[in-house]
């Protein structure tokens, strides 16, 4: 196939794709109507008595769609596994800045950022936030350490692996316990508490705690693999 024909074919395909998308856009613009009686409304109605959680998004993520979250966490784990298989590890930090001011700032900020991440995780059922967001915030504290200390900093691999595997096992255990003691996977097996307090929601807070630990460990591992990649 010569170059000219390939060019013409790709232009034809692009034009076809764009016209199909424009037709779809016009149809979407015309058909936009407010949805009536969706699943979300039903979930909002039953949320108050079935979960006692002030944040409805949290109850959807961890309770009504708990199996989905388990699958999502396993996709994240598999992806980090693939990254760890394919990136060649070295001890040299590609992005380390040897700056005293940054090192002192990292010393001050590291515990504060970790504390803020833990706060976001533990208050995920009361305010915006949750396991994923808080986990990423905790990982950002470790990224700050990577940037500040350069080659001299390496997080404890044993601690990272231990927290990741223990939280993953805890998440699966919670699901199986719900299946055994309750009626479905991630069923409510603890007392609900009263809405608006820190210990409300029962199993939901535990799920987010495990998810937060797992995401923090995995994101730290991920950034470590990219920051300490072997020179190309």
């Amino acid at each position: 196939m010569n170059l000219k024909r390939t060019l013409a074919l790709s232009h034809l395909l692009t034009g076809l794709l764009v016209s199909v998308m424009i037709i779809a856009l016009l149809g979407t613009l015309r058909l936009l109507t407010p949805p009536i009686d969706t699943i979300g409304e039903t979930l909002l109605h039953i949320n108050a008595q079935s979960t006692q959680v002030a944040n409805a998004v949290t109850s959807v993520v961890t309770y009504f769609r708990g199996l989905d979250t388990l699958g999502e966490v396993s996709i994240l784990f598999l992806s980090i596994f693939g990254v760890a298989l394919h990136m060649q590890h070295s001890t040299r930090n590609l992005f380390g800045a040897h700056d005293t001011l940054l090192q002192i700032g990292a010393q001050v900020l590291f515990p504060l950022i970790v504390l803020f991440g833990v706060y976001i995780i533990t208050h995920g059922h009361l305010s915006p936030g949750g396991g994923f967001q808080g986990g990423v915030i905790i990982a950002s504290a470790f990224v700050l350490r990577f940037l500040a200390y350069g080659d001299h900093y390496e997080p404890s691999a044993r601690l990272l692996t231990l927290s990741e595997s223990l939280s993953g096992a805890g998440l699966v255990l919670l699901g199986v316990l719900g299946l055994l003691l309750g009626d479905r996977i991630f069923a409510q097996i603890l007392s609900l508490g009263t809405m608006g307090t820190l210990l409300s929601g029962g199993v939901i807070e535990l799920v987010y705690l495990f998810v937060g630990l797992k995401v923090a460990a995995e994101m730290t591992l991920l950034s470590q693999h990219f920051i300490k990649a072997r020179d190309v």
């Binding site: 409304e41 979930l43 909002l44 998004v57 993520v61 994240l76 949750g130």
Partner: peptide, 16 residues
Amino acid sequence: MVDPLPQAMILTTIVI
């Protein structure tokens, strides 16, 4: 209140 279901699904999608 807005529908919580799309927000939860998009949270899943962002992580994936």
